[in-house]
């Protein structure tokens, strides 16, 4: 028996995994999208009350104000080490770090490498927007060759500053890393794929399989000096060729969680 009478139904609203706080992120900043996807996944998995997040230093430094769950704020780059300590003494909790490119790929390069190498059973959300946002637009380890920043005013000169680091490619080489993928937040289709990857990464942790990381190509309209929409186009035109999307490591141990 079915009831075909039409009634108004709630299709989408702010997830419970987010607090009611208004974020400090600039208009159109994709940090907000990443936060939302994380909160949606945590809600859908029903793990909000057993999840502990670790915030970085950088634009997401106040993430603990925005996520409605237990949170710690790490020193710059040390979130994977802090997550290691937390997870080792609380193995039944879901522990994730949320890190930008300066935090993860520059000052915290050692900590992320070894957390991945140990197969630490944590999930890392890596926001790559090719620039330092919080300090006002300086060169990041992921800044593209030729990209202008406030510390590479003439564009990143690889003779002087070297080349960008591709963290998915690097970490996927490590035996301890079981799920390492790169996604992008530059349009709706890719945002949907990003959410699936985040879900998969959390499922990997729930199954105790080891280190999982989702890199999200993200925008920084303010420090890139463009509108929010132009910034999304910039991701597509400039970042995708340098940081190809894809599954860099999907361990055979990972069984599909059954879609989302």
């Amino acid at each position: 028996m079915t009831n075909k009478e039409l009634v108004e139904s709630l299709i989408y609203t702010k997830p419970e995994g987010l607090t009611s706080a208004v974020t400090h992120y600039c208009p159109g900043c994709t940090h907000g999208i990443a936060h939302r996807l994380l909160a949606e996944v945590i809600d859908e998995m029903g793990v909000r009350e057993e999840t502990i997040g670790i915030a970085p230093v950088g634009c997401a430094v106040f993430a603990y104000d925005y996520f409605n769950m237990d949170f710690a704020e790490a020193a710059h780059g040390r979130a994977p080490a802090m997550a290691t300590g937390l997870k080792r003494v609380s193995p039944d909790k879901v522990v994730f770090t949320y890190q930008g490119d300066g935090d993860l790929a520059s000052i915290g390069a050692g900590e992320i490498l070894h957390a991945a190498g140990r197969g630490e059973n944590i999930t890392v959300i890596f926001i790559n927007n090719a620039i330092y946002g919080m300090t006002g637009g300086q060169m990041a380890p992921t800044t593209l060759p030729g990209q202008r920043t406030t510390s590479t005013p003439l564009g990143r000169d690889v003779e002087m500053h070297g080349f960008p680091l591709r963290m998915c490619e690097i970490l996927s080489q490590l035996d301890g890393a079981v799920y390492v993928v790169r996604r992008s937040l530059h349009n709706v289709a890719n945002i949907r794929k990003a959410k699936k990857a985040i879900r998969q990464a959390f499922e990997v942790q729930r199954q105790g399989l080891g280190f999982s990381m989702v890199e999200l190509l993200s925008s920084c309209p303010t420090n890139w000096g463009m509108s929010a929409a132009e910034a999304l186009n910039w991701i597509e035109e400039h970042m995708l060729p340098a940081y190809p999307l894809g599954d860099y490591k999907v361990s055979p141990a990972i069984s599909k969680h059954g879609g989302n």
Binding site: T2, N3, E8, S9, L10, K14, P15, G32, R36
Partner: peptide, 15 residues
């Protein structure tokens, strides 16, 4: 696409 979870969506669906 909303970075600020500012949009609530409703749809008429069969009961």
């Amino acid at each position: 696409i909303c970075p600020d979870a500012a949009i609530t969506v409703y749809r008429w669906v069969p009961a």
